[in-house]
Design a protein around this nucleic acid. Sequence first.
DNA 1: TTATCTGCAAAGAATTTGCGGGAGG
DNA 2: CCTCCCGCAAATTCTTTGCAGATAA
Lengths: 148, 148
Amino acid sequence: MPNVLESRIARLCSTMGLKMTEPRRVIARVLSESEDHPDVEQLHLRVREHDPSISIATVYRTMKLFEEANIVTKRDFGDGRARYEEKQGDGDHHHHLINVATGEVVEFFDDELERIKVRIARQHGLRLVDHHLELFGVPLDEDSGPEK
Amino acid sequence: MPNVLESRIARLCSTMGLKMTEPRRVIARVLSESEDHPDVEQLHLRVREHDPSISIATVYRTMKLFEEANIVTKRDFGDGRARYEEKQGDGDHHHHLINVATGEVVEFFDDELERIKVRIARQHGLRLVDHHLELFGVPLDEDSGPEK
DNA sequence: TTATCTGCAAAGAATTTGCGGGAGG
DNA sequence: CCTCCCGCAAATTCTTTGCAGATAA
């Protein structure tokens, strides 16, 4: 699994007048290797395994930078922290289904959903530029009484 | 426009061992009269117009109480604060479309979307219990270059 | 009366920022 | 060299909480 992010960041840095520093390289690699949706604290811990001198302030600054550069996506799963994941190719737009019984997060993509989002925005005179969608569910079986 | 929330809260209070206090009455009225999605600070300002002695801590505590009692909904529009709105009748489940050019928030409801959400959760073996969806868009015309 | 509430101010948690030294181009 | 960056710690912002007095039931 080659580090796509790192080269994208290298490009980003040269494009704008930014420097390709060691912390940015490490953070890019860590994020690229992460299969989950780490928050800043988790990222910092992983980054420290590669270089313990990197501070959490730099992780915050770098994530903001990456986010503005559109190479990572910030997620909000309802707990107070921001979570990050590398942005995939353009047509990606997957979403998250959170099993509240286990905390497990499943990514999904749905064509119909994509169409509907765009349609709804257009019906209101807007062009969709971003969206947040998270679904929260409980296992079908573990769910005896249809309470609520 | 009768204050439905206030009577719902009165019922809630007597059901559990809670007291129907002046701050709770005022906060309920303010929330019920709000047509927008105020954050705690805005709520506090409005509450103070009725009773300046009510503190913001009480607004926080009361919103948490109302949320747990399932009579208000907490919203997250991406800025750091929590926003609240009175929960409507059960089949309501509307969502929000935010015009990022103006900050305007439009509520919408879409049957197709409702069906799809449930279907997606079920496809993954889950029963949908909650969900977050916000769409962000810019005006179709004010949007000269198809950048991105 | 008495358990719940409330205001106040301090504590927490997540994130941002000013500053002076450090390093990439 | 000369900016841009970084680590550090202090500052911000939003929210929660401990405490002692106030209040509904």
